[in-house]
Simulated assay, not measured.
Amino acid sequence: METNHYFYVLHCKDDTYYGGYTTDPARRLKEHNNGTGAKYTRLPSRLPAEMIHIEKFASRSEATKAEYAFKKLTRKQKILYLSKKHP
């Protein structure tokens, strides 16, 4: 069975962005909003979070590289990246 690998971006209630990796975007969003996802999204001030971007990759390595690259961007660069992906 083929596994899909995804890099995703959440827009949090406090107007911040969180990038992550998953094989199941719906499950992962639910985990974040239940407070059982990443430490970053456990703060009540960041919830609820909305998944605003998803990219599918052939391998975990590619998806986690995209996640890492996104996390290194400044907020301004993240906004530009997201605007190019969502015209």
Rank of each mutant, 00 (worst) to 15 (best):
D15N: 08
D15K: 13
D15Q: 05
D15H: 12
D15Y: 13
D15E: 10
D15M: 13
T16L: 11
T16Y: 13
T16C: 13
T16E: 15
T16V: 05
T16G: 00
Y17L: 12
Y17F: 15
Y17S: 01
Y17Q: 01
Y17R: 00
Y17C: 02
Y17P: 05
Y18G: 01
Y18H: 15
Y18M: 07
Y18D: 05
Y18W: 11
Y18S: 14
G19Y: 12
G19M: 06
G19C: 11
G19R: 00
G19P: 02
G20Q: 06
G20I: 09
G20K: 01
G20Y: 05
Y21V: 12
Y21D: 08
Y21M: 08
Y21F: 14
Y21T: 08
Y21C: 09
Y21H: 01
T22P: 04
T23L: 06
T23A: 09
T23S: 09
T23N: 07
T23D: 11
T23Y: 01
T23P: 05
D24R: 13
D24N: 15
D24C: 12
P25R: 07
P25G: 08
P25S: 10
P25C: 13
P25K: 03
P25L: 11
P25E: 05
A26Y: 11
A26S: 12
A26D: 13
A26W: 10
A26H: 13
A26G: 07
A26C: 12
R27N: 03
R27I: 05
R27Y: 07
R27E: 08
R28F: 07
R28K: 10
R28T: 06
L29W: 03
L29A: 07
L29G: 03
L29M: 03
L29I: 05
L29P: 02
K30I: 01
K30H: 10
K30P: 00
K30W: 02
K30Q: 14
E31A: 13
E31T: 04
E31D: 14
E31L: 15
H32A: 01
H32N: 06
H32T: 01
H32M: 05
H32F: 09
H32G: 03
H32V: 02
N33Q: 11
N33K: 00
N33Y: 06
N33H: 04
N33V: 00
N33C: 00
N33P: 13
N33M: 05
N34D: 11
N34W: 06
N34F: 06
G35W: 06
G35E: 12
G35D: 06
G35V: 08
G35F: 15
G35N: 06
G35I: 00
T36V: 15
T36H: 06
T36G: 08
T36S: 09
G37W: 05
G37E: 01
G37H: 03
A38K: 08
A38S: 14
A38Q: 12
A38G: 00
A38P: 01
A38D: 14
A38V: 02
A38C: 14
A38F: 03
K39T: 14
K39P: 04
K39C: 10
K39Y: 08
K39E: 15
K39Q: 15
K39A: 08
Y40G: 05
Y40I: 12
Y40K: 02
Y40S: 09
Y40C: 12
T41H: 00
T41S: 01
T41K: 00
T41E: 03
T41C: 12
T41Y: 05
R42V: 00
R42T: 01
R42K: 10
R42C: 10
R42D: 03
R42H: 04
L43A: 11
L43E: 10
P44K: 01
P44R: 10
S45H: 04
S45R: 15
